[in-house]
Design a binder for these strands. Structure first.
Length: 564
RNA sequence: CGGGGCGUGGCGCAGUGGUAGCGCACCCGCUUUGGGAGCGGGGGGUCGCAGGUUCGAGUCCUGCCGCCCCGACCA
């Protein structure tokens, strides 16, 4: 492609409403155009990058045995009523009515249609296993899109669905997708790690995220400094500190005037926070619940939600707390009737806690689970932090930031049972099909790549996802000799299969160099009167500071070498 | 959904009631050609929308819409 004909101008200044680096660069380099909040068009450069990413994904999906399909963006709402997600999906489904007043939805994901496909197409165990995938548009009406392509409302996703007869099969399909994902990210030149994750609204038992570690990421990842344990903060577990459990003391009340927090309580008693039982109030589906956790830990609301069977906990407002007759600052589960109690298992790793007396200005000593208060639900709801012990017993946790660009789920029978997707096995019995689903955010992957790979001048894209492999800058092109040689190099590189952007514009050299850097093309070749005087053409990789002069006849060989 | 900010030419911005301007970009000409060139000439804006106040509104008032950021929420 000749720059003189390329649609899309580079900007010297980024639009004022772009804040994130990738957003600024994508706009400045002319990759994308914003149409509305979280809705973008791809311009030629952006589309070329996305196409390259898409092709790599497709290639690896096919290699893993996936079969490409296509499912509709517009779907009847009734399909989503079958799975039960019509009401519960977050963000709420975007809907409209068609001409015949039927409620339609714009799909945010495709588990329902994929299950419908399998339900219709599978009758026997002989039809299993198989994996289907598509690369296609989703719409999620996120309340707050942000960061250019990082979080958008309409986006392209590669979503795959595997169908198996049994657990072992599902695990095999899952593993095969995980392997494909690893190859995809590697081929794209991105350092993506797999971490344990919460499965959220998609459902299922196990899920893993693929995360590109970068400081500008919006997710927190906790990983062991000694093993390969890594998990999203939402999911991360750790080994809780255990204390010897002695004889249970007598509960006694004592005055704690002015003491409102666990910190103050522990301090005034001269004990560690781990000797206290902290009570936190949540409002769940309109009902107040009390969460008790050892004072040295914090509640992880995602874990709490999972313990509550998926219901969303919200911190209770002071009014709600008061209305429930609770005394904030001196509250505990002790003696509370009719209020659901959720207890973190850290409480079982110690005894004789200090806790609120449910009486303004008083606390209790020697409070113990079961004897003094009950647990309707007992489990892990504690938030992991850096420095805590890795759950595998190897090393301590460290915290990093990352961007989630892929997520894989073992769905099991979540959808097949609700939607009646089953098959007949060897013994003639009906069984539910076991599913897995696997997503990659295509545009987000590009944004994430830029977030983790740029400098003051612009993007630094890995060759695999850069819109062009080579930026050929011809200077002094009004000189026929130079112009002729530039054309020759352009031809040679293209004949060798490289995507070349030939900057043939009549603009000053500085403009070409700035654009080459901004767009992030991995190799730059310059031909000019000066380069010819110095013995040929100049080749420079985007990442190196210096260029080297080579003879024109070596261009291809050197470009090959620089691109590796 | 709560808090904050911003809407003036393609982009960045100025303009506190009296005929809409600057820089970049764009077009023409000449001169230039190694890190966003110089000179000269030129084109382009219902000032987000609607209503109101006023002799007169980009500017003041009311309502609405849009966009960004923080939070909440989050396949």
């Amino acid at each position: 492609m000749r720059s003189s004909q390329l649609f899309g101008k580079t900007l010297r200044q980024a639009p004022a409403d772009a804040e994130t680096i990738s957003h600024k660069l994508l706009i400045r380099a002319g990759y994308i155009q914003q149409i509305a909040a979280g809705i973008f068009s791809l311009q030629p450069l952006g589309n070329r990058s996305i196409t390259k990413i898409r092709n790599i994904i497709r290639d690896e999906m096919d290699r893993a045995g996936g079969q490409e399909i296509n499912m509709p963006v517009v779907q009847p709402r009734s399909l989503w009523e079958e799975s039960g997600r019509a009401e519960t999906f977050v963000p709420p489904l975007a809907t409209f009515k068609d001409k015949r007043e039927r409620e339609m939805i714009i799909a945010p994901t495709h588990e329902e249609t994929a299950t419908a496909m399998a339900r219709a197409g599978v009758t026997s165990y002989r039809d299993l296993p198989f994996t289907i995938y598509q690369i296609q548009t989703k719409f999620r009406d996120e309340t707050r899109p942000r960061g250019g392509l990082l979080r958008v409302r309409e986006f392209e996703m590669k979503d795959a669905y595997s169908f198996d007869a049994d657990e072992e099969g599902m695990d095999r399909s899952f593993q095969s997708m995980v392997d494909a994902y690893k190859r995809i990210f590697k081929r794209c030149g991105l350092e993506v790690i797999m971490v344990e994750a919460d499965s959220g609204g998609i459902g299922g038992k196990d899920s893993n995220e693929f995360v590109l570690l970068t400081d500008s990421g919006e997710d927190t990842i906790l990983m062991s400094n000694e093993s390969d344990y890594a998990a999203n903060l939402e999911k991360a577990s750790f080994i809780k500190k255990a204390f010897p459990i002695g004889d249970l003391g007598q509960v006694e009340e004592f005055a704690t005037p002015g003491i409102k927090t666990i910190n103050e309580l522990a301090k005034s008693e001269g004990v560690s926070k781990s000797k206290t039982a902290k009570a936190v109030f949540y409002s769940v589906d309109g009902e107040i619940v009390v969460v008790t956790i050892r004072g040295d830990y914090e509640v992880n609301e995602t874990k709490l939600r999972n313990q509550l069977g998926g219901l969303e906990p919200k911190l209770a407002t002071p009014e709600e707390v008061k209305a429930a007759g609770l005394v904030s600052g001196s509250a505990s589960s002790v003696g509370l009737e009719g209020i659901k109690s959720i207890v973190d298992d850290s409480i079982t790793l110690g005894s004789n806690y200090l806790a609120g007396a449910n009486k303004e200005g008083f606390h209790l000593r020697n409070v113990n689970l079961n004897r003094d208060f009950k647990a309707d639900i007992l489990g892990d709801i504690a938030e992991a932090k850096k420095g805590y012990l890795s759950p595998d017993g190897k090393g301590k946790l460290v915290a990093k930031r990352g961007i989630e660009i892929g997520h894989v789920f073992k769905l099991g029978n979540v959808y097949s049972s609700k939607m009646g997707a089953d098959y007949t096995d060897e013994d003639g019995e009906q069984n539910e099909i076991l599913m897995g689903c696997y997503g990659i955010g295509v545009g987000r992957m590009l944004a994430a790549a830029i977030e983790s790979n740029h400098d003051d001048f612009g993007m630094i894209l890995p060759q695999a996802i850069a819109p062009y492999d080579v930026y050929l800058a011809g200077l002094n092109l009004n000189n026929d000799d130079i112009a002729g040689k530039a054309e020759q190099i352009y031809e040679t590189l293209q004949d060798a299969g490289y995507d070349v952007l030939f900057d043939d514009r009549d603009v000053p050299p500085g403009v070409k160099f700035k654009d080459a850097d901004l767009i992030g093309v991995p190799v730059r070749v310059v031909i000019s009167s000066r380069s010819l005087e110095n013995g040929g053409v100049e080749v420079k990789s985007r990442t190196s500071k210096d260029s080297e002069i080579i003879s024109e006849s070596d261009v291809l060989a050197i470009v090959q070498k620089v691109l590796g």
